[in-house]
């Protein structure tokens, strides 16, 4: 039980790397001393993280600390201010279709007359120029892949309805299918459980856990509540106060580690059914108004 507090100052001592993974293969994701700056403000720095294939990692922390920015750095949309970042052995943004991405919750206009299956299909070839030829050889295979991935997320019953008429949970499953359709090796999910009701939260969390472990996809998921995903997680990155801690959930989400990270007394309580409640963390003042700032 010795979580590593990876802050900029401390990582210079060489202890700032999350080490509890078996170094059998090349890590899928690798951050070394990474820092992010948005609008001149340093969101976090000295983040060290290695993610192996088939690992489920959650990015936790209060609102506005830059959790979504971490995902955008991994995607190459936001450049890292410092440090070395490797995604599948390449620089961020260069791994192409090997990285699947589900942005922070977007709901479709109820009047949008496009089927779920079309949205999934866009994940497969929506970025190609020109008209899909009806006699192309891989057409069947592509169609089969779309059906297969919709089956995988359990969305077959409503994939042919206009996506605007699907419920939030149904839309989220279809979007996960869209992110998965090219068989990515890394899946970056930004608050996929946000604004889902509780049964849907646990169902979608279970689905992501299953995809991660069965399909051997590395998942990095931004979440503001650890509880729905707690049972499926391998590791946690907790960002707060400009620093980050990485490690197994039990070693990170506890009073001792979070107190050290926040530099103010924080208590982690465990309820009877195993849910974790963090008490006393200094939340950003605008908790419910501006979730997109992160």
């Amino acid at each position: 039980m010795n979580p590593v507090v990876a802050k900029a100052a401390e990582s210079e001592t060489g202890s700032g790397v999350a080490l509890d993974v078996t170094p059998t293969s090349e890590p899928v994701l690798c951050l070394c001393g990474a820092a992010a700056r948005v609008g001149g403000r340093t969101l976090w720095s000295g983040v060290d993280l290695e993610v192996q294939a088939g690992e489920f990692v959650a990015v936790l922390g209060p609102n506005g600390v830059g959790k979504s920015t971490l995902v955008k750095v991994l995607l190459g949309i936001v450049p890292a201010a410092e440090g070395e970042i490797r995604v599948l052995g390449r620089r961020p943004g260069e791994a192409g279709s090997r990285v699947g991405y589900l942005p922070q919750r977007r709901s479709f206009d109820p009047d949008l007359r496009i089927r779920g299956v079309d949205v999934v299909r866009m994940g497969l070839d929506g970025d190609r120029w020109g008209v899909p030829l009806p006699w192309a050889r891989n057409r069947r295979a592509q169609q089969r892949r779309v059906d297969e991935v919709i089956e995988l997320v359990g969305a077959s019953a409503y994939a042919h309805r206009p996506i605007g008429q699907c419920s939030g949970g149904e839309q989220q499953r279809l979007l996960i299918a869209q992110a998965l359709v090219r068989r990515p090796e890394v899946l970056l999910l930004d608050e996929p459980l946000d604004s889902l009701d509780l049964p849907n939260q646990s169902a979608v969390a279970a689905l992501i856990g299953r995809i991660c472990h069965e399909e051997n996809v590395a998942v990095v998921m931004v979440a503001h509540d650890v509880n729905p995903i707690l049972h499926h997680l391998d590791r946690v990155v907790y960002i707060a106060e400009g620093g980050a801690v990485c490690g197994p959930p039990s070693e990170v989400v506890n009073s001792e580690t979070l107190t050290r990270l926040y530099r103010t007394p924080v208590e982690v309580l465990s309820t009877q059914d195993g849910r974790l409640v963090v008490v006393g963390q200094p939340e950003a003042p605008a908790v419910h108004t501006n979730r997109h700032a992160g």
């Binding site: 991405y101 589900l102 866009m122 899909p132």
Partner: peptide, 20 residues
């Protein structure tokens, strides 16, 4: 016809299209 597919993607789902 040349830009139709990416245009459809960008119209329906701009964030993912941009990431792609």
């Amino acid at each position: 016809a040349a830009v139709g597919r990416p245009l459809l993607f960008a119209s329906v789902d701009p964030q993912v299209a941009a990431a792609r």
